[in-house]
Simulated assay, not measured.
Amino acid sequence: MPYEAPTHTVERSLRATTGAKIVAGIDEVGRGAWAGPVTVCAAVTGLRRAPEGLTDSKLLTPKRRTELAAVLHGWVTCHALGHASPEEIDALGMTAALRTAAVRALDALPVVPDAVILDGKHDYLGGPWRVRTVIKGDLSCVSVAAASVLAKVRRDAMMAELGGNAAEYAPFAFGDNAGYPSPVHRVALEEWGPTPHHRLSWAYLDALPRWRHLKKTRVPAPPGAPEDGVQLGLDF
């Protein structure tokens, strides 16, 4: 599929306008899943030429994502991942859970970024970081695209491992759907109910009369933020 390669335009702009020397790109995966954590990657890439084929992880095949992630591990200046568990998502709401995961990723970096590029429209991170939000940043910004691929590959691997380690999770096919909505996943939920790795404040439980009593009260999202619990399965 033809695509326009991401550039360092935003990274260079932040350097020029704010004096930021270290810029981290941030992207998340797992926001719209029914099961598993939400995972955030913070990647610092400098201004070197990006590896061939780098783009938003959603545009890459699983095989190509895995190959590219292996290259990125040795190419990025540094990167780190942070996760927020299903329990934390239920307790905090998605917006706060995203911030929790992002803070964990940033705190795990061996450097302190002077500025952060956050994929999307909404700044779920806030201070003390200097944040620049960029819609479709995973398509246009090198550091965010790198974070997108690294986050997706790592979370997919976590979900595949989860599905392969316990026989009782086999019907959910986590290795195929990574915890996202799918016909197989829905059938398994109807038959077996949610596992300890499912989000119990999510709207999917409304359509499962046998298990609806397990639903937890969801924390409302702040005005203008994406509503928690909706099916935002765009990062399959």
Rank of each mutant, 00 (worst) to 15 (best):
M159E: 10
H73N: 08
K121N: 15
C141D: 07
V38A: 03
G25W: 04
A33C: 15
R64S: 11
M1W: 08
L234R: 14
H79E: 08
V38G: 01
E87L: 12
R155A: 09
Y180L: 02
V29G: 02
G127C: 06
L109H: 03
S13M: 10
L208R: 08
G127A: 13
G163V: 09
R12H: 13
V71C: 01
E28D: 11
L54Q: 07
N165S: 15
L214A: 11
K58W: 09
W34V: 11
E28F: 04
L14T: 07
R65K: 14
K63M: 08
A115I: 12
Y124A: 08
K152G: 05
E88P: 00
N165E: 10
R218T: 07
D123I: 09
L139T: 14
P196R: 11
R48N: 15
D119P: 05
V144H: 05
A70C: 07
T195K: 06
D206M: 04
V38H: 00
T217M: 00
P128I: 14
L232T: 09
T77V: 15
A84V: 09
W129L: 02
P6I: 07
G93D: 06
D56V: 11
A42C: 05
H122R: 08
D123V: 01
W192C: 12
E227Y: 01
L109I: 05
W75P: 04
A35Y: 10
F172V: 12
N165V: 05
E52P: 00
P37K: 07
T133I: 08
A147C: 10
T95L: 07
T39Y: 02
G193D: 13
L47G: 05
A108Y: 01
T195A: 07
Q231N: 12
I26T: 04
T100Q: 11
V219T: 15
S182T: 15
L150R: 04
G163R: 00
S182Q: 02
A173E: 10
A147L: 00
R210G: 13
T39S: 10
D228W: 04
R212L: 01
A69H: 03
R99S: 03
A102T: 10
L150P: 02
P110E: 02
E52Q: 14
L208H: 12
G163D: 02
D206H: 09
V40D: 05
V116G: 02
A160P: 00
P51V: 13
L139V: 06
R31N: 02
Y124N: 02
V134S: 02
V23G: 03
V23R: 03
A16K: 11
M94P: 01
D27I: 04
